[in-house]
Design a protein around this nucleic acid. Structure first.
Lengths: 182, 182
DNA sequence: TATGTTATCATACACTTTGTTCTATATTTA
DNA sequence: TAAATATAGAACAAAGTGTATGATAACATA
């Protein structure tokens, strides 16, 4: 990739991130991003079709780091250890998210929040099934998956936006305690 | 209230509802609402400041019906009956929501979904505490409340948008089973 | 019924934002 | 070095927003 493209892309990402700390996604204009990034108008549109494309690209960027080294490949998944592995995987994800908390606070603000959460859930829907497939609830399987996925993503939102004082381990413990019937 | 105002308000609400069935909130323009409602431009702005105000007004309208006759006033709240009352209250809310499912499907579509969900959660946050105050989890109280509220609102979204075949009783049962540790 | 009040309509308007197109310039790659 | 490519900057059309105006119609009330 051309160094110029890399620099431009980074400048736009950084500018977007800076703006997200100050204001809602919907109230940020392309012009502001351009000014903050110190980049030409046509240059921005050479990289991203719309403001939404930029948001999506940033989400994908974050999730690539969070879900790249997949713990589910590393550890055993006997039924007996399922709870323990699940807890480990969650903590792992939470640590990666904590590294991005500066960006996440902006992404989770009001309007862009829904978009971020949608992508987040997509990843979780791929990750969670192996951990909950052994559970026997009397509910439709896709309801159960939705419940686990939504509860966790909302836990993350609760943590990042309002309760940063807790550690990833604590957050994982809160979640598991509420969601796992013993 | 002037009959003309009532008629205009209803026309705008109906138009908005119709448009929400066809397209996302963010892609609906004020001009489209005006055309569909067959109402003058300045008339629209005499009623609502922005498109978002209209959305908010519609949400409030729905929730007024859903949460108006508050079951929590009617029934006993001994600890022993808490579970039963909670189930009854949930079913009651779900029936009201089912009556509005035509509007809700539109409101829950992508972009406006977040806004609807926010208001919905505000109401639930007022309704739920009495039902969960007796539960003793080792998690922060506001995390627990957030967990119950989010799980239920996401249950509603799951139901309205994708699984309308279930009855309110079934949905309430799914939720309670997943959320209540026995 | 007569009268003052108020909501509506239609139009026009200034303003903001968007996304495209163009050319000259600078940077990169081979 | 030469060809290819990314950028800056400006200009542009198009779409949407919210406001202001005066004429008309519907309303409430005495």
């Amino acid at each position: 990739m051309d160094r110029r493209q890399q620099k431009t892309r980074k400048a736009i990402f950084d500018a977007f991130s800076t703006l997200l700390e100050r204001k809602n996604f919907n109230n940020i204009t392309v012009q502001e991003i351009i000014d903050e990034a110190n980049v030409g108008r046509s240059t921005f549109y050479a990289h991203f079709e719309t403001k939404e494309s930029l948001l999506k690209a940033m989400c994908i960027d974050i999730f690539q780091h969070v879900f790249s080294d997949d713990l589910s490949q590393e550890s055993s998944h006997d039924f007996s250890h399922a709870g323990h592995d699940f807890h480990k995987e969650l903590t792992h994800i939470l640590y990666h998210l904590q590294d991005n908390r500066k960006n996440l606070k902006g992404l989770l603000s009001c309007d862009s929040g829904e978009i971020f959460m949608e992508y987040f859930k997509e990843y979780l829907e791929q990750t969670f099934p192996i951990y909950i497939k052994e559970l026997h609830y009397d509910v439709p399987p896709d309801y159960l998956l939705n419940h686990f996925v939504c509860s966790f993503s909302e836990t993350v939102r609760w943590w990042i936006t309002k309760h940063e004082q807790y550690t990833p381990e604590q957050i994982a413990a809160f979640y598991v305690q509420c969601v796992m019937i013993k």
